[in-house]
Design a protein around this nucleic acid. Structure first.
Length: 560
RNA sequence: GCGCCCGUAGCUCAGCUGGAUAGAGCAACGGACUUCUAAUCCGUAGGCCCGGGGUUCGAAUCCCUGCGGGCGCGCCA
């Protein structure tokens, strides 16, 4: 993969292993291999602190260990100019300038594949996200969760996991009846404006729209028909219509799910009872004060949780237990749940649940996504779900576009609240991070257009390599090559920590270096051979930008 | 009251499984378009990493504590 970086890690591992053997550590010395790219040039192109992390195991001082590592370090590919031991025990690697060019071959010989890797070893992962109740349109907060889940899924897929995207539909329980009744009342209101809309129902504007559509379809057929007679039909109708709207919203946001999983299906199939029965056999279920409880405290939850209420109706949590059991039954090795941060109180009980089923805690990773504060021109936009006045995902996407919305959602760690300024997101200026990156791509595309007009035929061949080694000598060029080489490691790190925001940060850095290079140097000049070599570099930069934007679900435009 | 998350430049945030001189964008100030797209670039300025203890060769990062902010604490979904 990343040419230079991987070679160094490989050689380091071998060197350390051989020290381990001679020091009577027959198995590999446990260590965390970190290879950083220091900012300061005097610290080399790469640096590692392994010698210091090994002090405890080897019981020697770090500089001694570093010397041993350096002594045993082999460089079969001849990529290292020199190694230095510095400070308390860092080993700094200075890479031969020409070694960087290898990265061009990595990228250009198989462009679409560059960055993809087999970290996941083909293990199956399910990413469950959005899963908003089908009681109203998606709002902007759901949009953040949607972008996060979608990109995590793409990322894991690029890293060698087999990934499915799933949406859990909470279509069971009383809320569907409330939903149906809400439509019913809005519908009756069309005939009798004095009718009072009862409390505790969904009073959003979308419900009035739906009532009007319903009227257009069915006319006065259900006017003054008692609620009890038509409630199931109204509920079904409303649920289906709203779900369809959600699906359209997500579709236009660039998101496709592999599976839509119905909670009601769990009830119908009796899996909830079955799940509880299995847990009971293992001793995790007991009766208390008329209710049925799950002993989640056995696994670190702060208190036990009710699964069947005294009135005989099972709780949402019971369904969620059955749901996660079902997920594992479908043979996923790893589950990733994307939840709103307001659900963090449920994390412990869910983890307890899967452990009671015999799974490891790590088999379920829960990513919490914090709130989105919507601003317009720096001022907060009032949002209140209860009053039904919220800004929908659709409105935001219509206003600022899919690309800007997705990019902004992803430029922050998910557990940090996000300010989303509508005015900022749609200004076509340098305030807007997504344009900065897209602009670089469009610029590069233009270079190739002009190059073609001037008769530079660009095609990558290994023969070009030698040419590039001789011509791409500027520090900025080497820097760009190095950064291109860091792309796979960025994806790996991002996937391991389930932090998609690392990708936009990487992109920004890469693009910034490119813009700077572009402003100071001509890619297409009088020197034909130099121009060709620079075109190779440009092609690689363009490719990595396109690949990264592709993962983010953001377009890489050819013109702006 | 208890639990979780957060506190880093004027603003918005990276960096947090301990590593070398703490970074970026915006805002401010000064510069660069006859050239492949100025939606760009170059430069300047900006810091008690909330306070206080501790752990060690080394702390923005880990532990304790105080302060400040957000969220959650149902036999709701």
């Amino acid at each position: 993969m990343a040419f230079v970086r991987d070679k160094i890690i490989e050689s380091l591992s071998l060197a350390i292993a051989s020290i381990g053997e001679s020091a009577n550590h027959p198995n590999q010395v446990p260590f965390s291999m970190e290879l950083s790219a220091p900012r300061a040039a005097q610290h080399g192109d790469y640096a590692t602190n392994v010698a210091m992390t090994l002090t405890r195991v080897l019981k020697r001082n770090p500089r001694q260990i570093a010397e041993q590592i350096v002594a045993r370090f082999e460089d079969p590919h001849g990529i290292i100019e020199k190694m230095e031991i510095a400070g308390p025990g860092f080993i700094n690697f200075f890479v031969k300038p020409r070694a960087w060019v290898g990265i061009l071959h990595e990228i250009l010989s198989d462009p679409l594949h560059y960055g993809r890797q087999n970290l996941g070893l083909g293990r199956r992962v399910q990413v469950e996200f959005v899963s908003a109740n089908p009681t109203g349109p998606l709002h902007i907060g759901h949009g953040r969760g949607a972008a996060t889940g979608d990109v995590l899924a793409s990322l894991l897929s690029a890293c060698g996991y087999r990934v499915d995207r799933e949406y859990y539909i909470n279509d069971a329980g009383n809320q569907m009846n409330t939903l149906g009744a809400s439509l019913y009342y809005r519908y009756q209101e069309l005939f009798d404006e004095s009718m009072e809309f009862p409390q505790g129902h969904y009073q959003g504007e979308y419900m009035k729209d739906l009532a009007r559509e319903f009227f257009e379809e069915f006319g006065e057929r259900y006017r003054k028909v008692p609620l009890e007679e038509v409630l199931p039909a109204f509920s079904r109708y409303t649920g289906e219509r709203i779900l369809k709207g959600i699906q359209e919203d997500l579709n236009d946001f660039g998101i496709r799910f592999d599976n839509w999983f119905s909670e009601q299906g769990l009830h119908d199939a009796g899996v909830i009872e079955k799940t509880l029965e299995e847990l009971r056999e293992k001793g995790y279920i007991y009766e208390h004060e008329g209710a049925t409880w799950f002993r989640s405290t056995d696994f670190g939850d702060e208190k036990d949780r009710v699964v069947i209420r005294a009135n005989g109706i099972s709780t949402y949590f019971a369904a969620d237990l059955a749901y996660h059991k079902n997920k594992f039954f479908r043979n996923y090795d790893l589950l990733v749940d994307i939840w709103g941060a307001d659900h963090h109180g449920y994390v412990d009980r869910m983890l307890a649940g899967i452990q009671a089923m015999g799974r490891k805690r790590e088999d379920l990773q829960i990513v919490l996504v914090q709130l989105v504060n919507l601003l317009r021109g720096g001022k907060p936009v009032a949002m209140s779900t209860r009053a039904g006045e919220f800004v929908t995902l659709r409105e935001v996407v219509n206003e600022v576009g899919k690309d800007a919305a997705r990019y902004i959602f992803l430029t922050r760690r998910s557990d940090s609240p996000l300010d989303f300024d509508l005015d900022l997101a749609k200004t076509q200026s340098n305030d807007n991070p997504v344009f900065y990156v897209q602009y670089a791509h469009a610029r590069l595309c233009r270079v190739f257009e002009v190059g073609q007009e001037r008769g530079f035929s660009f095609q990558w061949s290994p023969r070009q390599m030698e040419e590039c080694m001789q011509r791409l000598t500027l520090p900025q060029e080497r820097m760009l090559l190095k950064m291109l080489g860091e792309y796979p490691a960025t994806l790996a790190s991002s996937a391991r920590s389930l932090e998609p925001h690392q990708i936009p940060y990487y992109l920004h850095e890469l693009v910034s270096s490119f813009h700077s290079y572009y402003n100071q140097n001509r890619i297409l000049g009088d020197d034909t051979q130099l121009s060709k070599a620079r075109l190779c570099l440009a092609a690689a930069v363009k490719q990595v930008i396109a690949n990264a934007l592709g993962l983010l679900g953001v377009d890489a435009p050819h013109r702006m």
